[in-house]
């Protein structure tokens, strides 16, 4: 077995260090080494989006990133989305719109939706649907998720005014 490598990175603003097998994914490191189990593994092949995180400002599937690639990088996960116990407007809108049922895809969807609104504060419904197409949800039929995202976008635009 290959030797583990020492990795230093920033996760949700905090410096972290961990040892990673060269074949381990960033998702493995987040979940198993750093105890951040909010990012989920639904497929391990980048097809479901449940492991979505933001890596150096880019939305990625953490199952398609090697843990060793995180050396010196910034990672943002679902655990960093709320400020203390104050939920991000997206999180709040997901609750208000009943945009989750089992909740397993929810962390990944929220991280993706945040990346969407960071890049495009005023998306159309179609833009939101295509942006979020990499996040599978099997419970909701997406209806309430899209409504929650659009509503959060409107609220965030209001806050900026």
């Amino acid at each position: 077995m290959s030797k583990r490598q020492h990795i230093s990175a920033t996760v949700n603003g905090d410096p972290v260090e961990f040892l990673a097998e060269p074949g381990a994914t960033l998702l493995d490191a987040l979940r198993d080494d750093l105890g951040l189990t909010g990012s989920k593994e639904g497929c391990g092949s980048g097809d479901c989006g449940a492991c979505s995180v933001i890596l150096d400002g880019r939305l990625v599937c953490s199952c398609l990133v090697l843990a060793v690639e995180a050396e010196g990088r910034r990672v943002e996960t679902i655990e960093g989305m709320a400020e203390g116990s104050k939920l991000h407007p997206l999180q709040q809108k997901f609750l208000e719109h009943a945009a989750l049922q089992c909740g397993f895809c929810t962390p990944g969807l929220l991280v993706s939706a945040k990346a969407l609104l960071d890049a495009n504060p005023d998306p159309t419904e179609t833009e939101a649907r295509y942006w979020l197409a990499g996040n599978l949800c099997r419970c909701t039929g997406y209806d309430k998720i899209i409504r929650a995202v659009m509503d959060a976008a409107a609220e965030l635009r209001q806050e900026k005014v």
Binding site: G46, L59, C61, L64, A133, G134, N135
Partner: peptide
Amino acid sequence: IGSTQVQGR
């Protein structure tokens, strides 16, 4: 090619 996430990589 792939999702928004895949586009990030």
